[in-house]
Design a protein around this nucleic acid. Structure first.
Lengths: 162, 162
DNA sequence: TCAAAGTTCATGCGTTTGCATCTACCTCAA
DNA sequence: TTGAGGTAGATGCAAACGCATGAACTTTGA
């Protein structure tokens, strides 16, 4: 792998990070969230995309939270009647998580408003072609993210810059 | 703006979010961080990119943290001798933030290792052309993120899905 | 068959975050 | 000049987070 290719990779990643932070701030500042925080909404949305009950660790794959934090977040959502937790008959260790009617309704309400903001921001910045590119690039990066290739133990060698 | 264009915008954004979460988890799991957390590193890195002292609110633009959280994060970094805080002679309200020698050294050490991981993940997933595209797209999205166009008060209309 | 190792989720605890608010300072118009 | 309004950053406090660990269950291999 060439030097410039590594460099380009880091520039691309930094660009993604900056865009993410910038837009997340903007979306979070919108007065659309009401009862749910952005992270809670993320969980409600993930559950809404999935048919049938989900396991906690499945949820964890999509959400940037530690397992204990996610466990408690779900607990709070359950206390508020937005998510239902049931024991998994097929695996005594696990829980089956599903949206309640109220949870689904809440997700739809907030999601509808949020989608408007997302569309406004993204369509203002990008062409159709760029949106397609971003969608494809994100998919590839996410696929790459999952299992860290065993590889050799982390190289102690130190690159010059970031 | 057409229906499908809004839809595409939301798909692109979701794709970015998924990639972000997936890779952030992976990077965070790497044993390269040592004394500094990822967020602390983000601040050190932002300071290292900037020539001359930075103001707290400038830092805030690039970091996804509330102002009080950032204020205290910087305080902790200052306590550890990685960042220097000085009163701004030109504006009595502000502070001038700069890396200390130790802070710069720490940023370089961690940054070097982190850059290796970023390069590994991104180059494994994307072509050169895609990296260029991502860099350009991120730049446009970030520019879009900054000031929310005054626009009309938020539409109460609700789109069908997200 | 059954003990050792792995997986799934929950909990104790110290740390960090966000919200609201406060203080100090700057700006601008009257 | 002055006072009303705005901005930069700090602080009190409750909520949420991450790490380490625990409890319950499943899987594996001898």
């Amino acid at each position: 792998m060439t030097r410039s290719r590594s460099r380009r990779a880091n520039e691309a990643w930094e660009s993604l990070l900056t865009a993410h932070a910038s837009l997340m701030k903007r979306f979070n500042a919108e007065p659309i969230w009401g009862e749910v925080s952005m992270r809670e909404y993320d969980v409600l949305y993930t559950l809404s995309k999935h048919d049938g009950p989900m396991r906690l660790y499945e949820l964890g794959r999509g959400v940037l939270l530690s397992q204990p934090a996610l466990s408690r977040l779900v607990e709070r959502l359950a206390d508020r009647g937005l998510v239902e937790r049931a024991a998994d008959p097929a695996d005594g260790r696990g829980v089956r998580l599903a949206l309640t009617a109220a949870g689904r309704e809440q997700q739809r309400r907030v999601g509808g408003r949020h989608a408007v903001d997302v569309a406004r921001a993204v369509t203002a910045a990008l062409t159709d072609e760029e949106m397609r590119q971003l969608e494809a690039i994100g998919r590839k990066l996410a696929a790459q993210g999952e299992p860290f290739p065993p590889a050799q133990p982390h190289p102690n060698r130190q690159e010059a810059t970031l």
